[in-house]
Simulated scan of single mutants.
Amino acid sequence: MRRTVKWIRALSVALAVTAAGAAPAQAAQRPVPGVAWQAKATGSDARFRGLAAVSRSTAWVAGTKGTVLLTRDGGGHWRDVSPPGAGALEFRDVEAFDARHAVVLAIGEGEASRIFRTADGGAHWTESFRNTDPRAFYDCLAFFDHRHGIALGDPVDGRFRVLATADGGRTWRLLPPAGMPAAQPGEAAFAASGQCVVTSGTRDAWIATGGAAASRVLHSADRGRTWTAAATPVPAGDPARGVFALAFRGGRGLAVGGDYRAGQPSERAAAVSADGGRSWRAADEPPAAYRSGVAWLPRGRATAVAVGPTGSEITTDGGRTWRGFDTGSYDTVACAPDGGCWAAGEKGRAARLGAAPRPQGSGR
C-alpha cells in the first residue's frame, strides 16, 4: 500500500507540473505522460458497465448476459461468480464492500429490474428485489456505508423512484415520492456506468439526469428522502444527451456526459461544482467526446479520470481542464481507497491504472 500511495502522489505531482506548463489551447490535446490503462484479460466477451473497485488487488465487474466476475489478484485471474439462471439479465451496476459482500443491479422494464446480493464472494446469491411495476425501470444503485444504500429508477407518475435499504441490500423499500421534485418531460437517468446515482459521506446522494430540455443534478442530504434540483451546462434536449455520470468528494462534484450516439458531437461534456451540487459551471477544457464514467483519484486532491467509448482523460485541477491519455473503449471507472483505479467496458475489457511503460532507449 505504501508503494501505491507513493506512486499516486508522484503521478499527481507530475501531471500537475505538466499541465501547468502546457498552453491552455493545447492542454486537452496533448497526451499525458506517465499514466496508462494496463489491460487485464477477463476471458469474457461481456460488456461491463458495472464496476466496484475494492482495492488494487480486488475488483468486481458486472455486465451483459448476467455476467459477474471477481478478481483478487490485481486482474491476473478472474472468477466467474455470476448468479445462476441470470443469463438473460443485463447487469449495469455492482457495489462491493470487500471480496465477499457485493450487490448487483439488473436493468429493464418490469421484472427485468432486479437486485441480487452475495455474502460469500459470489458462491451463493439471493434475489433481494424484483420490480413488479411494468412502468418502472431501475438504472443504478449506491451505498452510504455497509448497511445503507439506495437504488434509482426512472420517473413514474412524474417523479424519479428511489428504493432504500438499511441492511446491506437484504431488503428494499420504496421511498415516498413526495420528497422528489417533479421530473421534466422526457427526463431520465442513464444506465451507462453505474454512476447515475452516487454518494459521499453517510447521508448525501446525487442523481444525474438527461433527455429533457435541461440536464440536471438532484441532491439529497437525508439518504434519499428529500431532493433538490440544479441545472447543469451539459447539453440535453434529446433522449441521447445529458449527464451520464457523477463523482463527488465532499462538496466538490464532477459531471460528465454528452451524446452517446457514435459520431455525434458532445460539446460541454463536463461540468464542475464547488458547492455540493447546488450550482454547476462548464469545464474550461472538457473531454474530447462523450464520457460515461468519472472517478476521483483517492490520493490526488484535484485529480480525476473520465472514460468513454472513444477514450479517457485525466484532470489535475478539479475538473476545469481535461487531457487525453488513452483511446481505448471503456464505459465505467472506479477507484479504491488504497489508490487502485479500475476501468471496464465492451468485449470483456478490464484494466487498472498504472505507470505508462518507458520508451525503449529512454534510460532511467
Rank of each mutant, 00 (worst) to 15 (best):
I150R: 02
I314M: 13
T42W: 00
E95T: 14
R299V: 11
F143E: 05
L11S: 03
D45P: 09
V32Q: 04
G85V: 13
F48G: 08
V104G: 02
V35A: 05
R241A: 11
G354H: 02
A288I: 10
L175M: 11
F129N: 01
P33G: 11
R323K: 07
Y260L: 07
R249M: 08
A14T: 06
P155M: 06
A28M: 10
E90K: 08
R79S: 14
G324T: 10
G63A: 11
G263V: 03
R249I: 09
R114G: 01
V272S: 02
Q195E: 09
G253W: 00
R281M: 15
D93K: 06
R223D: 12
G211H: 08
A19R: 03
D317H: 03
S273D: 08
G211S: 07
G75H: 04
R2Y: 14
A10H: 14
G319E: 00
A28L: 09
A41S: 09
T226P: 03
L70M: 03
R159M: 15
T315F: 03
T316C: 10
A245F: 01
T71Y: 00
A282K: 08
D73N: 11
R364N: 15
T316Y: 14
I150S: 11
T18I: 10
R352M: 12
G324D: 13
F144D: 07
R364V: 15
S193R: 09
R9W: 02
R9M: 12
D133R: 08
A288Y: 10
L105F: 06
V103C: 09
F160V: 05
A295I: 01
G328P: 07
V104P: 00
L152I: 11
V305M: 01
R56D: 15
G251K: 14
S200A: 12
P134A: 03
V54K: 00
K6P: 08
P337M: 09
V198H: 01
P176M: 06
R358Y: 07
G348K: 07
V32D: 01
H101R: 14
G361S: 05
S312I: 02
F160G: 13
G319T: 02
E187L: 10
F129Y: 10
A188M: 08
R349M: 15
A16R: 05
E109I: 13
R147V: 12
A208L: 13
E90V: 09
A189T: 06
C335K: 08
R261F: 15
T4S: 07
T332G: 10
R358G: 13
A86Y: 01
D284A: 12
F91E: 06
W7V: 05
L70S: 00
F137I: 07
R117D: 15
Y290F: 11
H77F: 02
A283M: 04
A119W: 15
L175R: 02
G179R: 04
V197I: 09
G63D: 06
L70D: 01
T327V: 06
V234E: 02
G242K: 05
V294D: 06
R299Q: 15
R30G: 10
A88I: 10
W7C: 06
T126S: 13
G74N: 02
R261D: 03
R170N: 13
P286Y: 07
D120S: 04
C140R: 08
A269P: 01
S57K: 10
H219I: 03
A255I: 05
D167V: 03
